[in-house]
Simulated assay, not measured.
Amino acid sequence: MRDVVHAMDDLLPGKFEITREGIVHDAISPNSPHELTRLRLRKCLETAMPQEIVAHTGKPDVEDESEGIMRRPDVMVIAWSDMDVPGSFDPRALIAAIEVVSHSNPDNDWIGKVRDYPLIGIPIYAIFDPRTGTGAVLTDINTTPDGPRYATRKDFVYGEDVTIGDWTISTDGLPRYQPIGR
């Protein structure tokens, strides 16, 4: 499936990822509020973090071959030294994964990744939702009968400070999506 996803990445717009259920395609390319949110989060985090840690917004993916999951977080908090690898990043090397909820496929961020990220060992998952001006930071992976799950969830609204790992950033002024049809 990985080869199919990489081939489609070059041919079709949007973003492709692999979950346990199959390939997820976010068909619409990210819009301005999505990209501005990614940029603001990256810049705020990098201002707060030590230089050996980066808030990365590009490729490659994170992949756990044993679980059959390949994801591409909007922002990956990772040490520079853990980026120097061939192929995909090891998800367990990430300090945090940050997602800006897609206007076209919000369930991918709020349901699919909430399930997949603890399964592949990403210790912190922060979700920013420009549709509602809210978000959540999920931490503390716990083993359950249904598999690993985040045990702690801290909700926030835009305008509040939010803590991701060891760093607190402002959400004041993050862009919001306009209602569809405008």
Rank of each mutant, 00 (worst) to 15 (best):
C44M: 15
P145S: 02
H56K: 14
I127E: 09
S102H: 02
G181S: 12
D166P: 03
S102L: 02
T144H: 00
C44I: 08
H25R: 10
T37E: 14
A151H: 04
T132K: 11
S170V: 07
R40F: 13
L41H: 11
T139W: 03
L45I: 13
V100P: 08
P148Y: 03
I169V: 15
P33V: 11
H25E: 13
V114H: 13
G121W: 07
L94I: 03
P33L: 10
A93G: 06
K59C: 13
D172Q: 09
P123M: 12
I98G: 03
L94N: 01
I111P: 00
G14R: 08
I141Y: 10
D129H: 09
F156N: 03
R92L: 09
D10C: 10
G58D: 08
D9K: 04
F128I: 15
K113C: 04
T163A: 13
L11W: 03
E99I: 07
L39I: 13
D107C: 09
G133H: 00
P86C: 06
F156S: 05
V100S: 09
P33N: 05
R38S: 14
M1W: 02
A27W: 06
V77S: 07
D161T: 10
P123F: 09
L39Q: 12
V114T: 14
I69V: 15
L45A: 12
I127V: 15
T168G: 02
K15N: 02
L12S: 04
I120Q: 03
S104T: 09
R71K: 11
P148C: 07
A136E: 15
M49E: 14
D172K: 10
T139Y: 03
R92G: 04
D172C: 06
I78W: 01
R72C: 04
R2S: 08
R20I: 04
S170A: 08
A27R: 05
G68L: 08
I98S: 03
V5Q: 00
T171N: 02
N108V: 12
T143G: 01
Q51T: 11
P179Y: 04
Q178A: 15
V75M: 06
P123K: 12
N108D: 15
N142L: 06
A97D: 12
T143H: 02
T144C: 00
Y158D: 02
L174R: 01
C44N: 14
K113V: 05
P50L: 14
L41W: 12
S102Q: 02
N142D: 04
I95F: 02
I180V: 01
P145I: 06
R72G: 05
Q178N: 10
M76K: 15
A55V: 13
G14K: 05
I122T: 12
V100T: 12
M83D: 08
S170I: 05
K15C: 05
L36Q: 15
I78T: 01
E17M: 09
F156C: 05
R182P: 03
H6F: 06
A96R: 00
P118C: 12
R131F: 00
P106L: 13
E160L: 10
D129G: 09
D107I: 08
L138F: 10
D166A: 14
G14E: 06
P118H: 13
V75F: 09
I122Q: 10
R131D: 01
I69P: 00
A151N: 04
D84H: 05
M83R: 15
I127D: 12
H6S: 06
N108W: 14
V5Y: 01
F16P: 01
V157A: 12
T139N: 03
